[in-house]
């Protein structure tokens, strides 16, 4: 069985205070200048790929789970969403036709539309290429986000599933 490298950001909701620094860090990391001041004031289009969910006392930062067998990749009619060899699920914006199938399929609600130069495209967590640890994890002041890079069992998990007879 092919072993898969797992790279995922897990939220720990007991630690999350709902400060939303991860959203700011994500928006800055994915801006053109990667500078907080100009990202918010000059570019005028800060867009966070993670969303802090809140309901009463509960809060946690929810971004793409980078599933083993992602619903979004299944649903993508243009082949713009792909599972990379390192387990990341990425959207290739130049291929995306903004049909919305991934948005409707992702049970996490982790894919959103982002307007790039007047054209709407699907946007999702890319685990910050070029960074060792994603920006949201690095920014979290309370260790409510952890980055897991373990060599996971990957597909073996689903493989063990037994068929229910009858």
């Amino acid at each position: 069985m092919v072993k898969q490298i797992r790279r995922r950001v897990y939220p720990i909701e007991e630690n999350c205070m709902g400060c939303r620094l991860c959203e700011v860090a994500c928006a800055v990391e994915h801006s053109k200048t990667k500078d907080p001041i100009s990202a918010f004031l000059e570019e005028g289009n800060p867009f966070s790929l993670t969303v802090v969910e809140m309901a009463g006392p509960v809060s946690f930062s929810l971004a793409c789970r980078h599933c083993d067998e992602p619903y979004c990749v299944e649903a993508c009619i243009s082949g713009a969403l792909r599972v990379e060899d390192d387990g990341r699920v990425l959207v290739y914006e130049e291929v995306c036709v903004a049909c919305g199938m991934c948005v409707v399929s992702c049970p996490w609600g982790a894919i959103r539309f982002r307007e790039v130069d007047g054209v709407k495209k699907a946007a999702k967590c890319d685990l910050c290429p070029g960074r060792e640890v994603p920006a949201c994890v690095a920014a979290c002041p309370n260790r409510a986000l952890i980055f897991d890079t373990a060599l996971g069992p990957g597909l073996e998990l689903v493989e063990e599933e037994e068929i229910i007879e009858g």
Partner: peptide
């Protein structure tokens, strides 16, 4: 249609 996927889930 944003977050419509949660219903699908």
């Amino acid at each position: 249609i944003s977050r419509a996927g949660i219903y699908t889930g």
